Amino acid sequence: MNFHTRKWVKPEDLNPNGTLFGGSLLKWIDEEAAIYAIVQLGSQSVVTKLISEINFVSSARQGDIIELGITATEFGRTSLTMRCEVRNKITRKSILTIDKMVFVNMGENGTPVAHGKTEITYIKDQL
């Protein structure tokens, strides 16, 4: 799994316990996963269909730098399934795991449409 996106945990990202608010983290993950799906499928018309069980393994605190890792695990006819891990950049300690996130490629009429992709596309192969 490649970890490309990094976030710095700031005061506005904290819950009353002084740790990273899960909602902030989930927003970052959903956005990163959508960008990943857009790049992989070559389409900006993707939507989140499913996010499986979210396993909060440990917490992050103000000042921590975290990194988000996402990788494709399956290409469906209209969908892309991914796995996600979030970890502390410095300690490499896992913060969160999600085994399954599904995004669907949507057509102009708002229904799923085939994307034609079958394997991960790497940036070096796109250039």
Rank of each mutant, 00 (worst) to 15 (best):
G107H: 09
N2T: 13
I51H: 05
G63L: 07
M1W: 13
M1L: 15
S58T: 11
F56P: 01
F56E: 07
G23L: 09
K10H: 09
D99G: 15
V102W: 05
Q44C: 09
A60N: 03
K124N: 14
S43K: 08
L25C: 06
S24Y: 13
G23Y: 07
K10W: 04
W28L: 04
D30C: 03
F21H: 12
G116R: 08
L14P: 00
E12I: 05
W28I: 11
K117V: 14
W28E: 04
G69R: 12
T5N: 15
A34T: 08
E12W: 09
T97W: 02
I29K: 01
H4G: 13
I35T: 04
L96F: 05
K124W: 12
T78K: 08
L80D: 02
K117M: 15
E108W: 10
L50W: 03
L68M: 14
D64S: 04
I51G: 04
K10F: 07
T71C: 10
V102G: 04
K124F: 11
L80P: 00
L25P: 00
I51V: 15
T5D: 10
V9D: 01
K10I: 10
K89W: 08
T73G: 01
R87D: 06
K10N: 14
I29P: 00
I38C: 09
L80M: 10
I54D: 01
K49L: 09
Q62I: 12
N17D: 06
L127P: 02
K7Q: 12
R87S: 09
K7Y: 11
V39C: 11
T19C: 01
V86C: 11
V47C: 01
S45W: 10
K124D: 15
N109Q: 12
V86N: 03
Q62A: 08
A60C: 14
Q126Y: 14
P11R: 07
T121D: 13
F56Q: 10
D64P: 00
I51F: 09
A34P: 00
T81P: 00
L25A: 10
Q44M: 12
T118F: 05
L68N: 02
R77N: 14
H4M: 14
F103A: 07
T91Y: 08
Q40T: 10
A33H: 01
V86Q: 05
K117G: 02
S59G: 14
H115C: 05
A114D: 10
D13A: 08
V47K: 01
K100T: 11
V47N: 01
L26D: 02
T71S: 13
E119A: 15
G107R: 09
I123K: 10
S43F: 05
G69C: 14
T5K: 13
S79G: 06
I38M: 15
A60L: 13
C84R: 02
K100Y: 04
S52F: 02
K27D: 06
E12R: 10
V39I: 14
E85K: 15
M106G: 08
V113W: 00
V57F: 13
Q126V: 12
T71E: 14
L41Y: 06
T71N: 15
S24H: 13
M106N: 09
P112F: 03
I29D: 00
D64Y: 03
T48E: 04
M106E: 09
I38D: 02
